[in-house]
């Protein structure tokens, strides 16, 4: 890192980067990553000193399905491939109760998962109680995140996060699953959460409004100390917070991530060459999906449905937003398409 001229600031917070490339990135390639792709990226991230490398189907353990998309590999195959590639990085997994179960969680821990993320939609913290308890019993780091967090305000999120701490979460936070936030939205939410809990606070950004890095910086300044990001922003639609850009920005600001930027750039190049079909871009559809507050992972299924039905995908997103569709409700796309088709006739 010393070779890079960075012009550091002095704020100096320690920020733990949680690399979701091999989990959330899966949405961009319909969950089709192969073992050798995963292994290549995991090795490179490990070399760069990335603290946690998360792996799995885009919606986490047990989520491979017709509804959300079938993964190329089983959870077993993904976990085994990444585990053997890591020497110092911890292996992370993501599990949303209702998509995965305690059985999937135990299996992941048997495969050597070190960090377990239990996820729930923004008002549904109560569903994490059982599995946070299980993760603690299994002796792994138990974290908890609220999905689709833009749907409720700071007070509610803080209250839900405090409940998850009560269930045993050792870090809590929010995901901007739709890429809807402005930096001020993030600031007030993270501040409220940080004031309500005494564990590290997590932020996970999406880039639909071109604000993922800015929102992550706002989160750090408001007290978040665990930030999710993906190499090249690999992720659904407009993509996630771009990992290497975030680390460079945090470095310039004087925050410490412990990551070797040059090695991280090499990892990002590997992601670019070996994982991505195309670079994430803020096209019209992704922009509208962010504005309407719809889960970014709906992009590919919406495009497919729009083409089949001869509809404008922007209209489908607007209607999904009006119905407040949440991640996991991909079946609503067909319902909306049918209703829009009937309306058009």
């Amino acid at each position: 890192m010393s070779a890079m001229e960075t012009g550091r600031g002095t704020s100096g917070a320690r920020v733990a980067i949680h690399d979701a490339t091999l989990r959330d990135g899966q949405h961009a390639v319909r969950h089709q990553l192969a073992a050798e792709q995963m292994r290549a990226y995991a090795q490179a991230a490990d070399r760069a000193g990335v603290p946690v490398v998360e792996v799995g189907h885009g919606n986490g353990l047990g989520a491979s399905s017709l509804q959300i998309g079938r993964a190329r590999l089983t959870d077993d195959a993904m976990l085994a491939a990444v585990r053997e590639a890591l020497t110092s990085s911890q292996m992370g997994v993501f599990m949303a109760p209702g998509w995965g179960t305690g059985k999937d969680l135990r299996n992941a821990v048997d495969h050597g998962a070190d960090v377990v993320r239990i996820a729930a939609h923004c008002t549904e913290a109560a569903v994490t109680e059982r599995h946070l308890g299980l993760a603690r019993d299994l002796g792994v780091e138990a974290q908890a995140v609220l999905l689709m967090s833009h749907m409720v305000g700071p007070g509610r999120l803080a209250e839900q996060c405090a409940r998850m701490v009560g269930f045993g979460a050792q870090a809590v936070g929010i995901m901007d699953s739709a890429g809807h936030y402005l930096p001020t939205d993030v600031t007030e939410r993270i501040r409220a959460i940080a004031a309500a809990v005494d564990v590290p606070v997590i932020f996970h950004g999406h880039n639909n409004l071109s604000l993922a890095v800015a929102n992550s910086v706002a989160a750090v300044e408001a007290g978040a100390t665990i930030i999710d990001a993906c190499a090249r922003g690999f992720g659904a639609g407009a993509g996630n917070t771009q990992l290497e850009a975030l680390v460079a920005v945090l470095d310039r600001m004087g925050h410490r991530t412990g990551i070797d930027l040059r090695a991280l750039l090499a990892a990002a190049d590997i992601a670019h060459e070996q994982l991505l079909d195309e670079l994430p871009a803020i096209d019209s559809v992704s922009l509208i999906s962010g504005l309407t507050g719809v889960f970014s992972g709906f992009k590919l299924p919406v495009l497919a449905a729009a083409t089949a039905a001869g509809l404008d995908p922007l209209d489908i997103f607007a209607e999904l937003g009006r119905r407040q569709a949440v991640a996991g409700q991909e079946d609503l796309i067909a319902v909306v398409v049918r209703d829009l088709t009937v309306r058009a006739q």
Binding site: A63, S65, L66, Q67, I68, G98, W99, A120, H121, C122, T123, E124, V127, M148, M151, V152, R323, Q324, A325, V326, G328, Q329, D331
Partner: peptide, 23 residues
Amino acid sequence: VKVLANLSPALPAPAFRAEVAVV
């Protein structure tokens, strides 16, 4: 056979739904 369960925070609250897919 695979079963998935969602809880929706949408307001006004939507009616219960079940989607069945059979290959």
